[in-house]
């Protein structure tokens, strides 16, 4: 029975070990902020952090995550939506339909953790999540803002 450290809490999950982390989060633990978009790590809607690194959880078998690795989902990014990236997202009103946005925010938060002051080119190289509504210009602007406000 896999043990997982999710948003600071240790959780036991009773699930086949090949189950992707995404579906453990969504169906075993009720954490539906990480979305299913493609199932093949193309779109990034399922992005969570594992030890701070943005990870596409739809292709990560739950057996591939060690009990001491820290998984953070959008629900655990901040207690009240106050993470600098979330605040920047609100200020720029980035979201349209919003479905891809939790993954986008998790990717952005991880990027800023690795590179607190990313250039436009850094952002373009790192943020490869798909958004079909077309929020990209605001994603770029919000990440730049968040990098200023976080510093």
């Amino acid at each position: 029975m896999p043990k997982l450290n999710i948003n600071g809490t240790e959780r036991d999950v009773d699930v086949d070990e090949n189950t992707p982390l995404l579906w453990v989060l969504r169906e075993q633990l009720g954490l539906t902020g990480a979305k299913y978009g493609c199932g093949v790590a193309q779109c990034g809607a399922c992005t969570v952090h594992i030890d701070g690194v943005a990870t596409r959880s739809c292709v990560m078998p739950v057996s591939g995550v060690a009990p001491d690795q820290k998984i953070v989902t959008i629900e655990g990014l901040s207690p009240d939506g106050s993470h600098p990236v979330q605040r920047a997202w609100l200020a720029h009103e980035v979201a349209q339909c919003g479905y891809c946005q939790t993954g986008m925010i998790m990717a952005a938060a991880s990027l800023l953790q690795q590179k607190p002051n990313p250039t436009d080119d850094d952002i373009k190289a790192e943020i490869t999540n798909i958004c079909r509504c077309g929020t990209y210009p605001r994603v770029l602007a919000a990440i730049k803002d968040a990098s200023k406000n976080a510093g």
């Binding site: 539906t32 979305k35 919003g98």
Partner: peptide, 27 residues
């Protein structure tokens, strides 16, 4: 004016059809 539907989309609270759950629900 600011959109009325932004906040829950930034925290994972927004429930889409794919996220819906009911007690005893099958998939």
């Amino acid at each position: 004016l600011a959109r009325l539907d932004t906040i829950d989309k930034l925290t994972g609270k927004q429930i889409y059809g794919a996220d819906l759950a009911f007690p005893g629900m099958l998939n």
